[in-house]
Write a protein that binds this DNA or RNA. Structure first.
Lengths: 129, 129
DNA sequence: TGATACAAGTCCCTAAATGAGACCTGTCTT
DNA sequence: AAGACAGGTCTCATTTAGGGACTTGTATCA
């Protein structure tokens, strides 16, 4: 398990640490974008329209929400569908590819849940020092 | 990541996310911190000194590397140890807590590796349109 | 002896990313 | 007639990040 990861890292190094051109890193950078994971989590419970997502993320500006959705759409994780209602509405949903990312993300969420108090303790200790 | 007001948190809860005690935001702030995951991956192969990490991430400024390391140290994922050499050197290593985060992160890396071509295709399709 | 290098940062200035909020188009309700 | 709604875009102010000079004390090089 651990050796496998070291091997992976070694692959990075063998490429001359050109992590800027590493495809895996470029993918992860989208995963690591500020709000995209939150969007994915909201969409996990089903398709949602733009304003519903906006209401679900009150501290994210529409501008950034739009940008996150475009990024996710571009990478094929989210699908955008326009309905010809009046006024037209737009629905976003996870693609199969997007759904396949949810399991790793859930592992992260589970980890956070499990270690939450340990982190809080460490933080308190650090801030006290 | 900026703190949420009580009112905003209440709305998150309405959507089924317990972000009041939210470990999700806490962990997401690391995952979305752009460089911290990379630091963790580099430290996975063993303790490293500041400049070794800097060489391993040539496109990250020292300023941001310092900040990432402080954040990780604060949350107890990374330990910082100063050696009284001349000049003094500083070594960073994963704590057990930090190591426990590596498995979820590896899942993310594995996912990215597995899906990278699918994502590249989606991206090409999107950009062509 | 003086010049230079190293370690691990910090500081300042500029550049880039982000937030807040006004504004847009076209129907629908009051 | 006056908003309201949907899904955005646009501009401007604030926040955050990058780049490089600078620090302190020792050690090495010429």
């Amino acid at each position: 398990m651990r050796d496998l990861s070291v091997a992976k890292l070694a692959r990075f190094s063998d490429l001359g640490f050109d992590l800027g051109n590493c495809p895996v890193r470029s993918v992860l950078s989208h995963v690591s974008a500020k709000w995209t994971v939150l969007v994915l989590l909201l969409l996990q419970s089903g398709p949602k329209r733009f304003n519903a997502l906006a209401r679900g993320m009150p501290d994210v500006s529409k501008r950034m929400l739009t940008q996150s959705l475009r990024d996710l759409e571009r990478d094929g994780l989210v699908a955008r569908q326009v309905f010809d209602t009046k006024p037209p509405s737009v629905e976003y949903r996870l693609t199969p590819l997007g759904e396949s990312l949810m399991q790793p993300i859930e592992q992260l969420v589970d980890w956070a849940t499990l270690k939450q108090s340990e982190i809080a303790d460490a933080r308190a200790r650090f801030d006290a020092a």
